[in-house]
Simulated assay, not measured.
Amino acid sequence: MLFLVFLLACLCAGMTGYLFPTGEWYKRLDKPSWTPPNWAFPVVWTTLYLFMAIAGARVAAIGGPGATTALAFWALQIAANTLWTPTVFGQHRLRLGLGVIGLLWLAVLGATIAHWNVSTLAGILFLPYLAWVSVAAALNAALVRLNPSKR
C-alpha cells in the first residue's frame, strides 16, 4: 500500500509532461549536440519514478531514525520535480527553470543521502535520479546560454 501512495505522487508529477508538452517552442530552441533524444525522456522518467516510489515506500516502511528527514527530502524533491515542467514548458521560463532545477538537484542530493542513511538500497535507487537531474540541469543551463533572447 505504501508503494502505491508514493507511485501515485510520482504519477501526478509525471502528468505535468502531458499537461505541458515540449511543443514547437522547444523544437525551435538551439540545443547542445549532447541533448538526449526525445524518446529517452519518457523511458528514463518512468524508470526513475518507479525507483523513487520504491525508495520512498521502503524508507517509510522501515521508519526509525532518519526516516522523517528522508521523507521530507522525498516530498521536497517531488514538489520541485512537479514544478519544473510547467515552469519551462508551460511558461517558457528557461532562467527560472534553472533555479527550479537547482533546487531539485539539491533536494535529490539530500534525498539520496538521507535515504541511504535509512536503507542502502533506497539510497542506491536515488543515484540514477541524481545523475539524470545533473544532466537535465546542464541541459537547462545550455538552453539558457544558447537561447539568450528566449524567455
Results as ranks from 00 to 15, higher is better:
T46F: 07
L143I: 12
L8T: 12
E24W: 06
A57S: 15
S119M: 10
F51R: 03
L76T: 09
L50C: 13
S119V: 05
R145D: 10
L109P: 01
W25C: 13
R93W: 12
G110D: 07
R28E: 14
W39P: 01
A79L: 10
I113P: 04
G63L: 06
L130C: 08
A79P: 00
K150W: 01
I101R: 08
T22L: 01
G97L: 10
F41N: 11
V43G: 15
L96Q: 13
G56P: 00
I78C: 11
F6A: 04
L2S: 07
P42N: 02
T68L: 12
A142W: 04
A9L: 14
I124H: 05
G63Y: 09
Y26S: 04
I54N: 11
A72T: 09
F126I: 00
F20L: 03
A67L: 04
F41K: 00
G110R: 04
W105L: 13
G17W: 04
L50A: 14
T35P: 02
F89N: 06
S33L: 04
A79R: 01
T69N: 02
L139W: 12
G23V: 07
L103R: 00
V144S: 04
G56L: 03
L2P: 06
A114M: 03
A141D: 04
I62Y: 06
L139V: 02
I62T: 08
Y49F: 13
L19T: 10
I124N: 05
I124Y: 06
A142H: 05
G17P: 04
L127C: 14
L76A: 15
L139T: 04
G23D: 14
F73D: 01
T85L: 02
V108T: 08
M1Q: 14
R95T: 08
S119W: 02
L83Y: 06
T22N: 00
F20V: 00
N81Q: 11
W105R: 10
T87G: 05
F51G: 10
Q91A: 15
T120H: 07
S149L: 07
N81F: 07
R93G: 08
G64E: 00
P21D: 10
L71N: 03
G110W: 01
V135E: 08
F41Y: 12
F6T: 06
A138L: 12
N38K: 09
L98A: 14
V43N: 13
I54Y: 14
M15C: 12
P128S: 12
A107Y: 07
A131I: 14
L11H: 00
L109R: 06
P36G: 10
R145Y: 15
G90T: 05
P65H: 14
A53P: 11
M52I: 14
V88D: 06
L29I: 03
F20N: 09
K31I: 09
A55G: 11
V44Y: 09
A80G: 03
R145T: 10
A67V: 02
A53K: 05
L146V: 05
P36T: 11
Q77F: 02
E24F: 05
W74N: 00
M15H: 13
G63Q: 08
N140Q: 13
D30V: 05
T120L: 13
R58G: 02
W84E: 07
A72E: 03
T46P: 03
S149P: 04
G110E: 03
L48N: 03
C12R: 12
P128W: 02
L98C: 07
L50F: 14
